[in-house]
């Protein structure tokens, strides 16, 4: 568990470097990824995979928006690396594996799970983006959007 969260922390750093993010955001991006993955692991104990993705996604998006406003950089920097651990890579693999084995029932299940998880990621970004858009409607002439 600690090792998993540490893994997520390093994912934040490595992901930011791959995307050419400025150096000053690396620690924040790592923090967003690590806490996001920690949150997901907690939700996963009690909820289904897609619902845990949704709640963890809400948390990550919210955290990203707040950090982006503090550091004054585009929020995408944190969203991309923050959501990287939630991307349904495992589901995609399960889909391909089942397909190769000729197990269509498993393949269908995996496909549905991938779609669900991807949808939940989109939904959580939608929700938090909309909230921030309503709360922080930029007044004229003022540069507020991070």
């Amino acid at each position: 568990m600690i090792l998993q969260v540490l893994g997520a922390f390093l994912v934040g750093i490595a992901g930011s470097i791959i995307l050419n993010a400025p150096k000053k955001v690396l620690p924040y991006a790592a923090m967003v990824s690590a806490t996001g993955w920690f949150a997901y692991l907690q939700f996963e104990h009690v909820l289904s995979v897609s619902m845990s993705t949704f709640y963890a996604g809400l948390f990550i998006a919210l955290f990203s928006h707040i950090v982006a406003r503090i550091v004054k950089v585009p929020v995408t920097l944190f969203l991309v690396t923050g959501f990287l651990p939630l991307v349904p890579g495992a589901g995609m693999y399960a889909l391909v594996f089942a397909f190769i084995q000729g197990d269509m029932v498993q393949a269908n299940l995996a496909f549905r799970l991938v779609l669900e998880v991807a949808g939940m990621i989109a939904l959580s970004i939608f929700v938090v983006d909309s909230i921030f858009r309503i709360l922080f409607r930029p007044s004229s002439g003022e540069f507020t959007k991070p």
Binding site: Q4, L6, G7, A8, F9, L10, V11, I13, G15
Partner: peptide, 16 residues
């Protein structure tokens, strides 16, 4: 950049 790719792979292995 390449080291970061390696680090990403390794850290995802732990993360999962």
């Amino acid at each position: 950049h390449n080291l970061a790719i390696l680090l990403l792979v390794l850290s995802f292995s732990f993360l999962l």
